[in-house]
Amino acid sequence: MSGSALFVACSALPEGDGDEHAVPDALADLGFKTRWAAWDDTTVDFGAADIVVLRATWDYAERRDEFLSWTEAVPTLANAAQVVRWNTDKSYLAELGDAGVAVVPTTLIAPDDQAPRWPKAEFVLKPAVGAGSRGTGRFTDGDAAAAHLAGLQADGHTVLLQPYQSSVDSEGETALVFFGGVYSHAFSKAAMLGRELDESGLYVTEKLAPVQPTAAFRALAEDALDATAALLGILRAELLYARVDLVAGPDGRPSLLELELVEPSLGFRQTDPAAAWRFASAVRQQLA
């Protein structure tokens, strides 16, 4: 089998952040030609590619309606438009929690809701639609939190309120990566709150490192993918990629912080070189 793969980014980062540097060669070994394009480049015929892979579309949050309309016009998109619509609104965490997945406790605050009673312990506010940790704040002071919330609500955001997971300070997050529904590798991410945006202004620079997740982390990641597939009415294998971000709770047990199915960095530089081959095989599987 041979074909063409179109990797999609944004105009500020037309070829992503370099994480996928080894993937085009792995795809070429299987007969695929790979090129990059910005999702909003009107000169590109996205329908001509055998598979269109979302990678670094990190400006979608400010133009989500336009972005979703574009995804629905691309028949060979991976992951599919249905997945993108669901996953670009972090309210999905409440759905996964209702489905029995151990998620970080999450309260949704609608744009017209009053400020809630603030937790006594440290907590985080973040927009339900957002990427790269933009708009996320960590608070202990109710007045500062109320001002941050008001600013997000004024921009029309539903806001997530979550207790701050102190384990992130010492252990960071653990990101487990799946290709075609099958576990590939994992890496750790240091705490990002309070760090600077990169020069594109689209994401917070992360400190990443390879990691071997425990059995409990692996099991929760598998549970999260199973629940997602059930909610969306798809097979796990239909997800070209998934990144499951977990943290250790106060009792040491893992909780789901985010499930990234649209445009996450996949940690190719933090794992073995064969990961690019595993990704290439998953691309081939999608076309089969």
Rank of each mutant, 00 (worst) to 15 (best):
A131T: 14
G132I: 05
S133G: 03
T136Q: 12
F139R: 05
D141I: 04
D141A: 11
D143R: 14
A144S: 12
A144F: 02
A146V: 00
A147R: 14
A147S: 13
H148Y: 07
H148Q: 11
A150V: 01
A150T: 12
L152K: 04
A154E: 14
A154D: 13
G156F: 04
H157P: 04
H157S: 08
V159L: 10
P163C: 02
Q165T: 10
S167M: 02
S170C: 09
G172Y: 01
T174Y: 05
L176H: 00
L176A: 00
F178G: 01
G181M: 00
V182S: 11
V182R: 15
Y183I: 00
H185E: 10
H185N: 06
F187R: 02
S188V: 09
K189G: 01
K189W: 06
A191S: 14
M192F: 14
L193K: 01
L197F: 07
G201P: 01
G201F: 02
L202H: 06
T205V: 15
L208F: 06
V211N: 02
Q212D: 14
Q212I: 12
A215N: 07
A216M: 08
A216D: 14
A219S: 13
L220Q: 04
E222N: 13
A224C: 10
A224N: 01
A227Y: 06
A227H: 08
A229N: 02
A229Y: 03
A230I: 07
A230T: 13
G233M: 07
I234M: 11
L235H: 14
R236F: 00
R236E: 00
R236S: 04
